[in-house]
Design a protein around this nucleic acid. Structure first.
Lengths: 340, 340
DNA sequence: AGAGACTTCCAAAGCGCTTTGGCTGCTTTG
DNA sequence: CAAAGCAGCCAAAGCGCTTTGGAAGTCTCT
């Protein structure tokens, strides 16, 4: 059933039927009702390919997925996706994943924009002065950044959590508990979120006249193994930290293991706080010692990004609105006063 | 730059240029070269929307993503995706994720097929007599199942690992080590993979005149917490199992925690084998006691599915070819002889 | 040399929608 | 009462590609 058949059936022109269906004003209410009825009754659905060719709109949002033999997609991605799906499902909005060589995402961005494959895109894991962001901005496709970048002379729309504030609070708590030697096990230091977290922690330390020694900060991809290694290295120093703030729950697993291997205990010898993106399959309260966390649901962020992307596509949202979500600090058994 | 301009520039018809570009035989080699050259020089790329409308092919593969407030996307998904991306990237093949209400995926399947949004789809996590599979089969869109179903009167193309064989081997090893009371902590019992794993284990037990008691098998979604609960319940019985086979590394984390909480040790009191889908961020060799596993890279499976999907789209693969990958049994420190 | 068979190209008809630029006929206005 | 305005509809022209159904030119064969 296509438009031609439907309009013929109604003895109307394709123009009128199309307009009736798309809510244009120059068609009488009665006609509109007739058309709507008939469309529903016959299960008419406009062919998206045709509509696309005519309008240039695809009704899909895009994401360029960095891939490569040495590239692992972040497990956070799937949670974000769950959230995105929560919104998109209700709006028949599909997501196009365009795998790209992690070393050359630009080509792919250009392709999907030139091809008008999607109406909007979102970027994630941005770095300072991220070239993708600049590119997408000049290409003129609606977009939203999940996270933030820095060092541009233009503003852009984003959704981020208050990483700096979160780690500031975490560090402040530990300092209040008497800890003087804090360490940070961070994610990839080139990504903005990691920079912000470090900044937040340094700020809290500075406020008490403390510093974060170079040796007391480790940055690496967030795997259990890296968490373990970082923790061991930190704890085997001459003056080991008495508290660690860790950028991910997965790394925290490794930290816990290292602590055990060294015959230490949490929170007796070491206080531990980790950032929790809220995975359904790994919960901080279920750690051997319930883990204190800075918590922010990445799934909710996914839903919100989808919502804003949809708003941008339909012109409801404009400009470079940045949105920063506060982060909860959830205190559990893994923190205690500094050992004497 | 569109076809019209390009052909005008070459003083050829659109027909000829189109054919030259698409490798049709009715154009001379010389002309083809001229056309190809010009196309490359001017960066001509056919408009996919137009091509789609004309051919009905979209150059994309689809996946219906079950979502819902109570639905969590499996973290395995992201690894599978990495693999898919590995292949797709090199072939400019995009993946369309269509979020659907987990209770009504059918509507979405019908929509993406009717709309010709994608050239092929893949299904995952199939159950016996899975309705999606029957649907997709009748809808006539090329597809591949990742995993297997059962109870159909038709064959279908799939890629699966030998879950039954893997768990058969794991159980056999444990039996050989003298274990008589084995337990299984499985995934969702309604999914085929879980059924196959149970079957494999039962077969191994039966071969030695043993059985798997009803109480010795737990099925649930694969979270750390569920692993913990299942293990506790098992180990607190009167006659607790001396060996557990576990369907996922994430659950195994919980098992390890439970064992610790009960003051038991691995492998002294309990031998443990888990299935490992190969996550980059959680490795069995890094467990407190290195974990024995049945190992199969889900990422490789993703790449293979993409490859076969592409082959099906281009007609290179046909029929209901099933592909079953053997699974490695990797023995590490978490297994030992049964306690006396 | 003429018929048939290729080879190589082209004009034009789709694909199914949106949108432009009218065209009616009726109501309002000075 | 003529001019103007407006609501409501339509024919047809795109959007940019593929594909059908020739047509012209070249070869081959009897």
């Amino acid at each position: 059933m296509n438009l031609k058949q439907l309009s013929h059936m109604l003895s109307l022109s394709q123009t009128t039927v199309s307009r009736a269906l798309n809510g244009y004003p120059e068609v009488s209410e009665e006609t509109r009702r007739r058309v709507m009825d008939a469309a529903k009754r016959h299960g008419y659905r406009p062919n998206p390919s045709a509509r696309r060719l005519a309008t240039g709109k695809s009704g899909m949002i895009g994401y360029v997925l960095p891939t490569g033999a040495a590239v692992d997609i972040d497990p956070h991605f799937v949670e974000f996706l769950s959230g995105l799906g929560d919104y998109a499902r209700a709006h028949e909005l599909d997501l196009v994943l365009s795998p790209a060589d992690a070393d050359d995402e630009e080509t792919t961005y250009r392709r999907i924009v030139a091809n008008r494959q999607v109406d909007a895109v979102y970027l994630s894991s941005p770095r300072p002065a991220d070239r993708r962001l600049a590119l997408v901005n000049t290409l003129g496709i609606p977009f939203i950044v999940h996270g933030r970048s820095e060092g541009f002379d233009f503003d852009y729309p984003y959704l981020d959590i208050d990483n700096e504030g979160a780690f500031h609070e975490a560090a402040r708590l530990l300092i209040q508990l008497g800890h003087k030697r804090l360490a940070l096990i961070n994610g990839n230091e080139r990504e903005t979120f990691a920079i912000h977290r470090e900044r937040g922690m340094r700020r809290a330390l500075a406020a008490s006249g403390l510093t974060l020694g170079e040796r007391h900060i480790r940055s690496m991809t967030m795997t259990e193994e890296n968490g373990y290694r970082a923790a061991r290295r930190l704890l085997e120093e001459d003056e080991p930290p008495t508290a660690i703030v860790c950028s991910s729950l997965i790394m925290a697993l490794g930290v816990v293991r290292a602590v055990r291997d060294l015959g230490l205990t949490i929170p007796g010898d070491l206080s531990l706080v980790a950032h929790d993106d809220v995975f359904p399959w790994l919960r901080p309260e279920n750690f051997p010692v319930p883990l204190s966390t800075t918590r922010s649901s990445i799934r909710l962020a996914g839903a919100r990004v989808a919502e804003r992307l949809a708003a941008r596509i339909s012109g409801l949202e404009e400009g470079a609105r940045g949105e920063v979500w506060p982060v909860d600090l959830v205190v559990r058994g893994s923190v205690a006063g500094a050992p004497v």
